[in-house]
Design a protein around this nucleic acid. Structure first.
Lengths: 260, 260
DNA sequence: TACCAGGAATGGTCTGACCAATACGCTCAG
DNA sequence: CTGAGCGTATTGGTCAGACCATTCCTGGTA
């Protein structure tokens, strides 16, 4: 008999008469908010499993549809991961820098930003963190960077160099600053960058032997803790990227085709 | 009679035998991807209205539940906005810097970042953009900033100064760089910052008359296109914030209570 | 002309069912 | 006793049809 939210018991037991806001809208949103809060408070930590959908229905006093919509939102927000089958369910996950950056990249792609905007912001940031990187890079960081350079060089020879490889290098450099916020942001920058460049099929021209060699030199400078040299190399490297990008008529990211 | 996805017609007409990937999972995800693509391609632009749920059901050949789950994901991703009532439906929205920053702030809050991490990244960025700001700030920018400073001063007198006001000032400064990517990032930084600070009830001590005066001076420096002075002021300003933050035992953002 | 009531469009929710994927445990053969 | 294999229970994914709440528009009435 489909009791709607109009009768006395809208589902969330105990809300008789003392609603806090005006919110009568969207029960699923209330559920989302509750779970979000539990996660933020640490009552739910990554790895924890939420009750099954059917169980949540009972606890919240709502139908399965509503619970499922809430779970969809939580999943889309990157807070939980849903697995099917027995012992499945919604598991709280650790929002990794990678995951976060990816979601943001999606939105940046759609925002009103030009490739030039992104490049400019990138220059500010990647140059700004160099002091930190030069100061804090560990041997492991440098070893990883060397490996990436090697990998890049051989890929370049075989003609299989991709923008993703360049992005990986820059992100790894940033991670040597040993600051999660910085790492995430650099990662974020490369998302929309990649999309734009790959769609325009300009990966190869952007990264010639010269670029690869600059990567090599940069690692060297970092290893020698030579900030000025590192800064010089990075400036040249990014500036060249910016210049080449400009030659592609600076297409808006959300419309890689360009139409002028 | 509830035809499941097991019979010959799993819903999305025309997929007989030529699936591209292995993806048979989650029909709603396919719908999300289609809409996402349409938006990215510009076939759907902000303001456009998607067909009604019932109409989408027919077009996709799926049930309303499935369509609704897809819409939930799109909504959570900040791509559409859903309005009820006649002439309602799902409307494509322009992903504003504000909206994007908010979503990211949520995730940053949960990621493993300390307030110190965020502050450090903020220093790198806000200092790095100063040259752009000093160069590009328009009269309108400066007028806005002056207004914000005024507002801050009077709020300070009446004891009603909030961190949100400080955040608004810094974001407005960043927007004077006239680069959407930069503006969004600064906005993003202030999200988790605010949460952390407000929960710790340290808004007031962080922003005394001295901080307000620094805001004033900064605007002045920008107006005079005096990069060095602006840089000096900003450095002092942020450094002081960082120092005070450190006194609060650098609590992890996701656990403002601190437990050491 | 101005206002208000009714209707139509649309999202929000409910119910109850079935299918698909998965993991656990039991049975039976070796 | 051990291992392989097959059920079976659990759980998410989907469907169908229904009703309610909100909102806008239209047409009738004062």
């Amino acid at each position: 008999m489909a009791m709607g939210p109009s009768d006395g018991t809208p589902g969330l037991g105990g809300t008789k008469g003392l609603f806090s806001p005006v919110s009568v809208d969207r029960i699923s949103e209330v559920i989302v908010e509750q779970v979000r809060l539990l996660i933020r408070e640490g009552k739910l930590v990554p790895g924890d499993r939420l009750p099954s959908e059917r169980s949540l229905c009972e606890q919240f006093g709502v139908s399965r549809v509503t619970v499922r919509e809430a779970l969809r939102v939580l999943e889309a927000s990157g807070l939980v991961e849903i697995r099917v089958g027995a012992r499945g369910g919604a598991f709280v996950i650790q929002p990794s820098s990678e995951r976060v950056g990816k979601g943001l990249a999606e939105l940046m792609t759609l925002a009103s930003m030009t490739a030039g905007d992104v490049t400019e912001a990138r220059m500010v940031f990647e140059l700004g963190i160099l002091p930190l990187v030069v100061e804090r890079a560990t041997e492991e960081d440098i070893a990883d960077l060397r490996a990436l350079v090697e990998q890049g060089l051989s890929a370049l020879e075989s003609g299989s160099y991709t923008m993703a490889m360049s992005a990986a290098f820059h992100v790894r450099v940033a991670s040597a600053a040993h600051n999660p916020a910085i790492e995430m942001l650099v990662q974020t920058f490369h998302g929309p960058m990649l999309m734009s460049l790959q769609q325009a099929h300009v990966a190869a021209p952007l990264m010639g032997p010269r670029g690869a060699h600059e990567h090599f030199e940069l690692v060297e400078a970092i290893e020698q803790r030579d900030l000025e040299r590192a800064r010089g190399i990075m400036t040249r490297h990014l500036q060249r990227t910016a210049d080449r990008l400009a030659n592609y008529s600076d297409p808006r990211l959300e419309n890689p085709g360009g139409e002028e």
